[in-house]
Computed example of a mutant assay.
Amino acid sequence: MKGWLPTFVREYEKVALEAVQDRADYPRYLLRLCELERIDRERRMVERRIRMARFPHTKSFDTFDFAAQPSLNKALVLELARGEWIEQRRNVIALGPSGTGKTHAALALGLAACQKGQSVAFTTAAALVHDLMEARDERRLRTLQKHLASVKLLILDELGYVPFTAVGGELLFEVLSQRYERGSTLITSNLPFENGHRCSAPNGSQARSSTG
């Protein structure tokens, strides 16, 4: 029981005393324990999803300064926080210059998704391309691609801040293609949107990605 019902083990004596004081019968006593176990289990699952998401910081909309970003549609952002677009496997692209709260909003949307029971993975575009190329060299690319395709929400931050090679762009595009209609992707970028994002590589070639 200790491994499967930790809250039962931790709280049964305290709840038993409360049940005696409240003159609660045995079924009500068990119901209280079950409710505590359910609440604690949900909390642990949320914490686990947050750890698995690998957020660099935990941000929520409680600390987001909407007044400092008057051009941002607050109603739309809070609607996105409800997570219906993730259930519908739709995608979101947040465009704007540095310092406009894109990453904060992306982190807050990711946190909200974790709290609603959805799996999330957060990464910068540069870090993901690096991981993909490293995985390819170490012959574990398929494993990484499978993981990235399986999460409900992939948050790809800072697309276009750091240029990457054509090979890196192809690997990134493959990830986005594999996620098409299988999961949602949220991309933040400071690049203008013209039929997709273009990231110039050092050799002058361009890697293009699109969420479809």
Rank of each mutant, 00 (worst) to 15 (best):
M1E: 10
G3M: 12
L5F: 15
P6H: 12
T7N: 00
T7A: 12
E11F: 00
K14R: 13
V15W: 14
V15L: 14
E18G: 11
Q21P: 01
D22E: 15
P27Q: 10
R28C: 05
Y29F: 15
L36A: 09
R49I: 08
I50H: 08
R51V: 14
R54L: 07
F55H: 09
A68H: 12
L72V: 15
L76W: 10
V77W: 03
L80V: 09
R82E: 09
W85P: 03
R89C: 06
R90N: 10
V92G: 04
I93Y: 04
A94C: 06
L95D: 02
G99T: 12
G99Y: 09
G101L: 01
A105I: 13
G110T: 14
Q115M: 09
T123H: 10
A127T: 13
A127P: 09
V129R: 07
V129A: 02
A135V: 07
R136C: 04
D137K: 12
L141I: 12
R142Q: 11
R142N: 11
H147I: 04
V151E: 04
L153K: 00
L156A: 03
D157F: 02
E158Y: 08
P163T: 02
G169E: 03
L172F: 10
E174R: 13
Q178N: 07
R179F: 03
Y180F: 09
T185E: 02
L191H: 01
R198N: 03
P202E: 03
G204C: 05
